[in-house]
Amino acid sequence: MSHTALIRSHRKPRRSASTIAMRAGVAGGVLSTLAVAGSAGAANAAEPVTQTIELPTLTADLAAQVAHSADATQQTAANYELQAERDAAAAKAAKQAKADLAEAKKKAEAKKKAAEAARKAAAERASRDAERTTLTASASVSTSTSTSTSTATGSAAAVIAFVKAQIGDAYVSGGTGPNSWDCSGLVQAAFKQVGISLPRVSQDQSVAGTQVSLSNLQPGDILYWGSAGSAYHVAVYVGDGMFVGAQNPSSGVVEKPLSYDPPTGAVRVL
């Protein structure tokens, strides 16, 4: 035993466990409060105060609405693109249709002109055939009446003698002799023998004198084929229903009856 155990002043008073615990709890609470307050103060001093905005929560319904809006936008864009393609196709089709219509009109006009030309040509052939039929009959009558009366005299005899002297010569387009001729070149040269100057071409020779009927021909008359003023062939009537002319490259200068190729008309310059 300690030598001081019996001395009262040296003994410490006993404390209960509950009292010690309570005091410890109070002290701990105070210290915790101070620590928290200190921390908060330090944080407030170190960081600026900011305002917190609460964002909406992306719920399943909102997500579905966003997806639906995106699909609708995409569909609208697709519809615009499809409409643009349709408009372009329609414009192209309209342009092609316009071009096809113009081409069809052009072809129809060409066919119409061709048909009109064919109709005119047929009418001219029919008229020419009718004239030749009439002239053949007239030539037959003329031949029978002139056979015994057609005797060339004077200038007519000289013209006829010249053209008959050229029978057998060649036909050459543009020929004016002395050994090759075309139809108007031979006629011009024949009448030059008697001092008569005729135009060079058959069209002008067909109107160079007085028009006479084929039923009243005289030796020395100029025969023509085609219309007066636009004749395409001429020859000289030599009497007895015969004529002499430079016919074509295969025949040359020949003497033929009127029935061989009935003329359209005749002119008299003697």
Rank of each mutant, 00 (worst) to 15 (best):
L6Q: 11
Q96D: 15
I7W: 05
A60N: 09
K105M: 07
A84G: 06
K111E: 08
G25Y: 04
I53F: 15
E85D: 11
A40I: 12
P56M: 05
V49D: 12
A37E: 06
K12F: 10
E81G: 01
I53T: 10
A77K: 02
K106Q: 13
A114F: 00
A121P: 01
K112S: 12
L62N: 05
L55K: 08
A93I: 03
A43C: 05
P13H: 11
N79W: 04
A43D: 07
T59C: 03
A114C: 01
A108T: 11
Q51V: 13
S9L: 08
K107D: 13
A37N: 05
T19K: 05
Q51F: 05
A104Y: 07
A21S: 07
A84Q: 13
A46T: 14
V49N: 11
A63D: 12
A37C: 04
S39K: 00
P56V: 08
P13D: 08
K106G: 12
T50K: 09
A108C: 03
L31D: 04
S39I: 12
A84Y: 06
A5C: 02
H68I: 05
A115Y: 00
Y80S: 07
A45I: 03
G38C: 02
D87R: 01
V30C: 04
H68G: 10
A63I: 07
E116N: 02
V26S: 01
T76F: 03
A99L: 10
R23W: 06
V26W: 03
D100E: 14
D87S: 02
T4M: 12
R86D: 05
A91E: 13
L101I: 14
H68K: 14
D87Q: 07
R8Y: 04
Q96E: 15
A97F: 00
D61I: 00
A88E: 09
K106V: 03
K12I: 09
A77L: 11
A84D: 10
A24V: 10
E81Q: 08
N44T: 10
K105W: 02
A35Y: 00
N79Q: 14
K12E: 14
G29R: 08
A60K: 09
A64G: 11
V26H: 01
A5V: 05
T73A: 15
Y80T: 08
I7R: 09
A115K: 05
R119L: 11
E81A: 12
R119Y: 08
S39L: 15
L6M: 10
A110H: 07
V36I: 14
A102W: 02
K98F: 04
L55S: 08
A27W: 02
R23L: 15
K112I: 01
E54P: 00
A115N: 03
K105G: 00
L55A: 10
A104M: 11
E81L: 04
E103N: 06
K120M: 08
M22Y: 11
A17M: 13
S18W: 11
E54W: 00
T59A: 06
Q96A: 15
R8Q: 11
A97I: 01
E81H: 01
P13E: 13
D61H: 01
